[in-house]
């Protein structure tokens, strides 16, 4: 039977756990740690079979990403609304592959660089979207700035965009696809993506 004092202590402990779990920086940090651990563990296998990288990214990083929202923001309001359910899920599939391969390629050259995340200042409770800044320090050369844009949902945070040195993934793909979408809509875009992935 907990005494009143102990009960309050436990309550505080639990709530700080909750707060810690809700912080986007902590979530990213944990994800990064797990990712790095996996990379170190399977270093030998990865040298022979780089495709394993895709699996690792899929297992660890993708759950932290809100692919649905990301895909929507890339396609844009008009075209997403006009698209059928089948087109949407097709696009989601292709787009997820694109994101995975982008990240896998970046990780391919990972060799024990230090990754650090900057803390969020100000009141987190007011925000529904945060930009988490991180720095990757390579062995030689300038620091790489990566900003993760995260959306709050149901007690956790998920990535909806990331920018390397100011260049946003969503914006880049949006510009790339805008032309195709303009000329032929989702149909044309899906056709082009299919052709690209066949290469």
């Amino acid at each position: 039977m907990l005494s009143k004092r102990n009960f309050i202590i436990v309550l505080f402990g639990l709530s700080s756990l909750v707060f810690a779990a809700v912080s986007p920086v902590v979530l990213l940090d944990q994800t990064a740690i797990r990712l790095i651990k996996q990379l170190k563990q399977h270093r030998q296998q990865l040298k022979q079979k780089p495709e394993l990288l895709v699996k690792i990214v899929n297992k660890i990083l993708i759950p932290r990403i809100n692919q649905d929202k990301m895909a929507q923001y890339v396609v844009g309001r008009t075209h997403w609304r006009q698209a059928t359910a089948q087109q949407r899920s097709d696009f989601l599939r292709y787009f997820t592959r694109v994101v995975i391969s982008t990240y896998a390629e970046a990780l391919h050259s990972y060799s024990d660089q230090k990754i650090s995340f900057a803390p969020i200042r100000g009141r987190l409770s007011d925000l529904s979207v945060v930009n988490v800044h991180s720095e990757i320090e390579p062995m030689d050369g300038p620091v790489i700035n990566v900003v993760y844009q995260m959306l709050r949902e149901k007690g956790t945070w998920k990535i909806i965009d990331f920018s390397v040195d100011g260049v946003s993934l969503v914006q880049s793909y949006r510009s790339q696809f805008a032309d195709v979408l303009l000329r032929g809509g989702m149909v044309a875009l899906l056709k082009e993506l299919r052709a690209r992935q066949a290469e």
């Binding site: 529904s128 979207v129 930009n131 900003v147 965009d161 040195d165 260049v167 946003s168």
Partner: peptide, 11 residues
């Protein structure tokens, strides 16, 4: 809520 920073050309 969703904002993106200025792209600093010099960087």
């Amino acid at each position: 809520q969703r904002t993106a920073s200025v792209m600093v050309l010099e960087n």
